[in-house]
């Protein structure tokens, strides 16, 4: 993390998939030769508990960083945010925001219903999250990291200039400087200590409207509110492995289960027509998502020796004639199906 260097973190895939390991290793090997890059490798981001060295390491990074993980960028970014590793989300052409057809390229982007946003102060740095599932070869990632390196350098210059313009009055510290907490030892061995698999929801606060439907729905005490009455995933490890039910209940698609098999729940980029898929399950004979969510919840309740509650508890009663809020990318996405350019 020396001055002027960009921190790059590779978060390994869980398991031992040789193709994934090969991509990680090839990328790591070429990044080690790359000037201006500080590379570290940690286990699967999602599995890192609060005490894992990999997590402490991430927390210790003060500046811009690139995180390459086997996760959707949106999932990785909000996962880091929940862990207190925060910043501005960097944009990368590797995961285009919206893969629209050219015909409506002139239209201004639709107004998005704003989520409540992250809580507290966001440090002035940028975090780029790249999805290692997007490409099989490492070269494209290497080139993108070089591009980000150049962008980060410009951002740094901008910040420096801003700082100089508004130079704070000099503060003279008297007495002994305060003792800094000693940084833990970040050796490759401790960084890569294998964590056990975890399972919990991640809230995308750029979409969350604090409607509390997840809090009402989940009967396992996963959700809570902070001092400002904002929803948060309070008890991650109370969550039931494999159960994504609250994500189905969320009216804003703000709840992500990063390792879930279906892309929409795992945090696929909203607005990316190529990435986010319309769920046709209902049309093809599947149940209503609320029913599925209630079934999934019942299964976990019974497993815990509790009574199933079906649709009786915490199922939102949405008003069908609710006035429509401002349109967002997801709305336009489903509209795109309307025109069915087949």
């Amino acid at each position: 993390m020396s001055k002027g260097k960009l921190t790059v973190v590779i978060s390994q895939a869980p398991g031992k998939n040789p193709a994934k390991r090969a991509l990680e290793e090839n990328l790591a090997a070429s990044l080690l030769m790359e000037p201006g890059i500080e590379l570290s490798i940690i286990p699967h981001l999602y599995d890192l508990g609060p005490d894992h060295t990999g997590r402490l390491f991430l927390e210790s990074i003060p500046g811009d960083m690139v995180v390459l993980a086997w996760l959707f960028p949106r999932a990785a970014f909000w996962l880091l945010d929940r862990d207190g590793i925060r910043g501005t989300e960097g944009q990368s052409p590797l995961h285009p925001k919206a893969e629209k057809d050219d015909e409506d390229a002139d239209e201004p982007p639709p107004e998005k219903a704003p989520g409540i946003g992250p809580v507290g102060e966001i440090p002035d740095r940028t975090i780029w999250c790249l999805d290692l599932r997007d490409h099989a070869g490492h070269q494209i990632y290497l080139e993108e990291i070089r591009r980000i390196g150049a962008e980060a350098a410009l951002l740094r210059e901008g910040r420096q200039a801003a700082k100089q313009a508004t130079k704070p009055p000099a503060v003279i510290t008297l007495g002994l400087p305060t003792q800094k907490k000693p940084a833990p030892e970040f050796t490759p061995e401790t960084l890569l200590a294998p964590p056990s698999r975890r399972w919990y929801p991640v809230i995308d606060y750029s979409r969350c409207t604090n409607c509390m439907e997840c809090l009402d729905f989940c009967l396992f005490g996963v959700y809570g509110v902070d001092g400002l009455d904002r929803i948060l995933v309070e008890n991650q490890d109370s969550c039931k492995k494999g159960c994504p039910a609250c994500s189905r209940v969320c009216p804003e698609q703000a709840i992500i289960f990063p390792d879930y098999k279906s892309a929409a729940i795992a945090g696929a980029p909203v607005g990316n027509i190529g990435g986010l898929k319309i769920d046709l399950s209902k049309l093809f004979g599947g149940e209503d998502p609320m029913v599925v969510a209630a079934q999934e919840r019942d299964r976990e309740l019974v497993r815990d020796g509790r009574d199933a509650v079906g649709l009786a508890v915490g199922i939102p009663k949405r008003q069908t004639d609710k006035p429509k809020g401002p349109r967002d990318e997801l709305d336009s996405l489903v509209d795109a199906l309307d025109s069915l350019d087949i």
Binding site: A264, K277, I278, L280, S281, L283, F284
Partner: peptide, 9 residues
Amino acid sequence: TSKAESGLY
């Protein structure tokens, strides 16, 4: 598929 995903029933 390119536009959708679904369970099959």
